[in-house]
């Protein structure tokens, strides 16, 4: 009976957890939380490397998104400032998740992961977190 006493709680715990619904803090949510902090920072970087001007935003984001694998185009098409400085700005935008494009997609995936986690779909959550990480290039 003593052994069963020990076994039963071990059996019951997962069952009780399943009955209680999705985990308030499970492995997937931990990954979401960790990635979220990074995403928040990257979103701010993406904002600051674009600009409030439509022309500059269009040029920087357009160049940043078209770079292969996140590398900026060698010569920015539009010199909004001296070419060296604007190339640097485009490079920064490219590094910021290809003008923010990858950050935006990662955020969507992460939000979806959170929703799936709350629905108890651990596998779906993990897949979406992996998707978010792949948009950001992983760590």
């Amino acid at each position: 009976m003593r052994a069963l006493d020990k076994v039963l709680p071990a059996i019951l715990v997962p069952a009780l957890l399943a009955l209680a619904g999705p985990a308030a803090a499970g492995p997937c949510m931990d990954r979401i939380t960790a990635l979220e902090g990074r995403l928040d920072k990257e979103a701010e970087v993406a904002i600051s490397t674009s600009s409030g001007g439509q022309g500059v935003a269009g040029a920087r984001e357009g160049q940043a998104m078209e770079g292969t694998g996140g590398s900026p185009a060698a010569d920015p098409a539009v010199p909004y400032q001296r070419e060296g400085k604007e190339a640097q700005a485009v490079g920064q935008a490219a590094a910021a998740g290809e003008g923010g494009d990858k950050v935006m997609q990662a955020k969507a995936a992460l939000n979806r992961a959170r929703a799936l986690d709350q629905q108890g779909d651990a596998q779906g959550c993990e897949q979406q977190v992996a998707q978010a990480e792949s948009h950001l290039g992983g760590e």
Partner: peptide
Amino acid sequence: PTIGSIFAPDPKHELPFELGMGLT
């Protein structure tokens, strides 16, 4: 079609700043 098409060759998707205007 995106404004990015005047700055980069043949982009097919809108840029984050375009999507940030009343969508995202």
